[in-house]
Design a binder for these strands. Sequence first.
RNA 1: GUGCUCGUAGCUCAGUGGAUAGAGCGUUGGCCUGCGGAGCCAAAGGUCGGAGGUUCGAAUCCUCUCGAGCACGCCA
Length: 621
Amino acid sequence: MIRDLIHDIVAKSLVSLRESGKLPMIDLPAFDVERPQIAEHGDYATNAAMKLAAAVRATGEKANPRALGETLAAHLRETVDLVPAYDLIESVEVAGPGFINFRLKPAWLLRQARQVVDDAAHFGAINIGRGQKVNLEFVSANPTGPVTIGNGRGAFIGDTLGNVMRAAGFEVTKEYYFNDSGAQIEKLGRSMEYYLRLALGESDTVKPDEGYFGPYYENVAQRMLDAGAHTSVSTETPKPRSRRKKSPEAPTEAPDARAMLTLPEGERAARIGKAAAAVIMSDIRQTMARLHIEFDIYFNEADLTTSGAREEGIEALRAAGFTKEEDGALWAKTTAFGDDKDRVLLRSTGGPTYFASDVAYMRNKYGRGFERLILVLGPDHHGYIGRLKAISGMLGHSVDDVEILLYQLVTIKIGDEVMKMGKRLGNAITLDELYEDVGPDVARFFYLMRSSDSQLDFDLKLARKQSEENPGLSVQYAYARAASVFRKAADAGYTAQEYEKANASALLTDPTVPANAREHALALMRQILRLEEIVERVALAREPHHLTRYGMDLSEAYHRFYETNPILKAGTDVAQPTRLARLQLMRAAQVGLARTLTLLGMSAPERMEREQIAEPAKQAE
RNA sequence: GUGCUCGUAGCUCAGUGGAUAGAGCGUUGGCCUGCGGAGCCAAAGGUCGGAGGUUCGAAUCCUCUCGAGCACGCCA
């Protein structure tokens, strides 16, 4: 990465200056290399001189950051001239309170176009993760209904973060935890029993006081009956564990819903609930798949209960001395690791709590060799951070090996009208409905435009627009436009081989290229090369929203380049080497756009369908 | 009551302790009519909620304060 290279150059210069006595013998301070906000300040800047001044002052000596900057800059200029590998730097200047600004060589920048094109499939990939095994859990919505637009935020954040962390060299497993056992499943079972009986014509059936109701559940009931109709009758308890191992994608064998209605009172609700949950789980998977959210593992909580893992987890805590009995219940001493109160593992009535499953699940994850566990959770899980970290501590890991990423609420806005919603309000919009409305790509982009810490107002009116005002589409438009130019170029007899191997510095040597065209070409290259820095930042800070911002910046730079650097435009006379150079830059931009879109989980379309524009007659002949 | 998040342009929001605080949408003005076409260029618009503090330097860190949202079960 260019930034690291510059950091390295500066660090070496500081050491060298200290050895030659031009700096006092002090511990060299940490310093930053970053992109200045203002283009006139160059490509990169470092605050090394100011940090150095502060370090010198700390020893009681006087120090002038500006003067130190001059000393450092002078040494840097010499170094850059001497070392061939540093040939990318055009100038080193001191500015403001003591910043040192670096400017990159135009010829070097343009040379990178070919590198980018040659590395099309992996451009942007870095290796800061060094293969660290990371478990990334997200969505994990209960299989008691369709996924809502609220859950959706976790879905897109998790999926994209996973993509980017992989590109950054982490070994990421994306995981969905299905809470498919326990009281809520029984509640679902009671609701479904009602709908099943209703569907079978038992008009005297009684609706439970509370539960899951609505057309969706009627539909689930119908599908349960349809599926059971052509399956052998079996009320045997299924073995979820072995089934999952066989094939996580295989549809569950459909138990006969009618037969389940005859089960004894005690097990009926649980069995029906489980069967219904299986149907809902397959719906959820389908929702995820069509939005291009990919999980490596769908983990069923039931596996923890049937395998005895939950009891083993409790035993492990007991053996480690983190349990206590009080008021007839068994508690975990989570306060030992910073939680604000201890948590119950086994209720005084005997049954294990949800928390006991959490313990078993985390133990399972560590058992699979993950070094770091990331959980993407909704705003209602704020209270869980302390206890989850405490589990990590009790299991002998650092509390910091568990990271909780909380995202804030989602609302839908149409024009100026903000719709508040929630399951409780009964007007929760499902992710499927949003998919139908705006498609997977725009949905993904809009969800990722905001920092997770901010509330998300999803602007449906803007999302529905099929023009470049729609920021989600603008990145794809840029890609498609480039594709169109390449098609035209092929028609005109240019081969990819020809321009991909061309020398882009023709843009510097051709006197007919206007200055602003050259500037926009260089600006485009700078923007393309920024992708690696974005990948690093997203991966380390766990903030996927920077990628959408970058996508907008890149497509804007692309458009400016496109407007000022004609290639095949009628009526323009462009020298052949310049034409090839521009094609190469455009290809590099397309690579950057494609990589950005891919990381965002969006498609990179060769053609875009536009809204039907009223374009009468003319085209007819 | 306690805790967490947020408060930045008309709206929705970026902003890694650094220089003149940015983008999209919206608004206004100009250009353009076809390499992808609803495009391009430009402008206006800010006491970064408020007050102290730390620092060479604060939208960013600390304290207090005001406002908004959410969470605080032997529920799952």
